[in-house]
């Protein structure tokens, strides 16, 4: 890692608190059902690490509305990343495809933050090696812009205009202390 002078943080600003996140996920869950005309053939695949608990929460909400357990899995995209060779070899995260597979299903990829779009590109490649879904959709908690590929989300918790030097951080109870989306500005 090149060493830059550590920029001074101006403190983290909370843009979504735990109640905002609950509302956003509830809305996304309803939108998924609406778009899919119910829960049939749905498979939710979270992208580790924070996409996985988000996918599980969405599945819980769908279950409470529809009374139907949508299959939930996880999809690690590490080996499909286009910057794989640019950094030291990285540990793999867990991939778990639900028992029914994804062939002919509507796969909803779930991630915490949509930024350059490269992770989702890698996820689409990973899906390609696993099966042939009927359709692939994308749900994200935050879309912070700055796309580098022609990719867009179908379901968005919050559009968050950011500058490139800012950092968006999602914390989720279960992995982290509590639910929150914070943005950290950076003073040069």
């Amino acid at each position: 890692m090149p060493t830059h002078p550590q920029p001074e943080s101006d403190g983290a600003r909370v843009v979504l608190d735990d109640r905002d996140i609950v509302r956003a996920l509830t809305r996304i869950s309803h939108e998924i059902l609406e778009r899919n005309k119910g829960a049939d053939d749905l498979v939710l695949l979270g992208i580790p690490s924070r996409g996985v608990p988000l996918a599980q929460r969405i599945a819980e909400r769908i279950a409470s509305v529809e009374g139907y357990d949508v299959p939930v899995g996880s999809l690690d995209v590490t080996m499909y990343r286009d910057d794989l060779r640019l950094k030291p070899a990285r540990a793999l995260l867990h991939t778990e495809i639900p028992a029914g597979g994804i062939d002919g299903k509507v796969v909803v990829l779930v991630d915490d933050v949509l930024f350059s779009g490269r992770t989702i590109r890698a996820a689409l490649d990973a899906l390609n090696d696993i099966g042939r879904p009927k359709a692939v959709r994308l749900a994200v908690l935050v879309d912070r812009g700055h796309r580098e590929l022609p990719i867009r989300a179908d379901f968005v918790g919050k559009n968050l205009p950011t500058s490139l030097v800012e950092r968006v951080k999602v914390t989720l109870a279960g992995i982290d202390d509590a639910d929150a989306v914070t943005i950290q500005g950076v003073v040069q």
């Binding site: 080996m79 794989l84 060779r85 640019l86 950094k87 030291p88 070899a89 990285r90 540990a91």
Partner: peptide, 9 residues
């Protein structure tokens, strides 16, 4: 882990 990145893990 040896070859997958720019350097081994």
């Amino acid at each position: 882990l040896l070859l997958g990145g720019s350097e081994p893990a």
